[in-house]
Design a protein around this nucleic acid. Sequence first.
RNA 1: GCGCCUGUAGCUCAGCUGGAUAGAGCAACGGACUUCUAAUCCGUAGGUCGCAGGUUCGAAUCCUGCCAGGCGUACCA
Length: 560
Amino acid sequence: MVKEAGREDVGVRERVREALFKSARELGLEIERSRIHLERPKELSNGDLSSNIALLTAGLIKSNPLKLAERIVENIPIDPDFIEKVEIAAPGFINFYFSVKYLRDQVLKINRLKGSYGDMDLGKGKKIQIEFVSANPTGPLVLVSARSAAVGNALVNLYKKAGFNVESEYYLNDAGKQVHKLGISLMARFRQSLGESYNFPDDGYPGEYLIGIARQIPEDKGREWLGLESDVGVVKFVDFALERMVESIKKDLESFGVSFDLFFKESALHRSNGEIDQALEIMKEKGKIYENDDALWFRSSDFGDEKDRVVVRSDESPTYFLADAAYHLNKLRRGYDRVIDIFGPDHHGHVQRLKAASAVFGGSKDWLEIITVQWVRLIEDGKEISMSKRAGEYITLNDLVSDVGLDATKFFFLMRKNSAHMDFDLSLARKKSDENPVYYVQYAHARISSVISFAKENNVEFPDNWDCVELLEEQEEMDLIRKLVVFPQLVEGSVLMNDPNRLTTYTREIASYFHSFYHICRIISNDSHLSQARLLLAEATRIVLAESLRLIGVSAPLKM
RNA sequence: GCGCCUGUAGCUCAGCUGGAUAGAGCAACGGACUUCUAAUCCGUAGGUCGCAGGUUCGAAUCCUGCCAGGCGUACCA
């Protein structure tokens, strides 16, 4: 029932599209429904929805677009309670205006549906997995990972709202050379902690966090590990380091408000006759493997990759790529209808080869979608903060959150589209003032909450009879409602584009429209019916704002 | 060299997958609080949408070629 209502909102375009389609067909115009494009004009004076159907088709029947538009409009079957006015504008647009009744009804609908407003069934329960962050557990989470975390988390929320059955996952690279280096680095730190003058390995991880972890190793244990044969001993250090690193990454993500259904360990794929072997076997069966220079190569270039990729090295060890391919074989077997990977920019070279592997394993063309989130630069007082991962000097997720706060961090990351390189302005994010867009939006929510409690104190209650919305007629009221009713489309659009940034922009617009309304229209006044009507509108705004913020993972404070 | 991303107001960025007069925030300037939160509102100013072609009724958006920046281009992950 609730879902139906949400779908109907997205179906607004569908209703208009259908009317256009029927009218056009009456005129003998054969046009595919899907080609009838409806958009929201920038200028309110151009209506709430606009169609370019006449412009598109006039050429086909050698007619003037304006005249054709007129004919289409003449006998268009549309409910006047829904669309009040249909106008034609040069050079041939057909503009639709929502009726005032329709808009007022939406205020009531939002009040009725509350947080479920905008829920929809786009996904039809399809099972979809979103994998993100997946940073190597060889150090604390850095800025790009933080950005991926913010984006991934928001997408999980959005897909759920859109009716998908979503699982979130973190792929843990707990095998391979980098992890080995981590162990060696920890061993070095441990030796140093014993007072040995031990040279730290050149290609080790020099960050201070390993010094801290080294201190946690009980001295007798550590000495025992050093006494073991070097291969076996290093593994002890690897395991210790991994356990602590994973623990701290999980903790950091949790305090960032991001959780995962599963942390999938790469090592699970490496067991004998495990998925890595099977993945290779399938590639061989499909004839996509050949040998060269003692190594095994995968013909990813058959699928649009720049060149073929090594899957088994000449020393017979599997590459990272083969493990990653095997991981996707595993995902495929788990029966997801779709899988989304969120990559950092340093991994974009992997996109084609992974898609190639998925195709070989039998995944359909759209089964695997890869989103690339771009780099983040930190700016302070107008200058870039330089970081060196090599030297172990960098700002972590934790540093950032404790500096500017949880909400500002997420909000800032989600203000940009994924594919845009972003400058994170620390000085601005830090400011708890009107200059900071997060507080602008949160302030609107706090303000509404405050008005609602003020209303209660003054015995203005939410009405049982909702007829009072008929008193809503001011320009600011209508403009605000028009903004609110777009919410379901925003949810849908964010999902289709795999980018939550629109929603963030939207929260700023809602806040702005509300503030204007607030200044022009006194909410709690001597007119009790009008007060109730405006209270309903304020509450509807609060609901949409709170739900939008929830989706992007930002809190909606009652007071500020 | 090749591939991916980016180039829009002084700064940071939107621009709804081709629409109508290109929009916000910050910074600048001028106004608005004895009444529900001034962390707010209203107004002014600010543009060759990197450059050049092309596609069409119509281009910031699509195509081609340049220019600039970032990243990738390992039998590392």
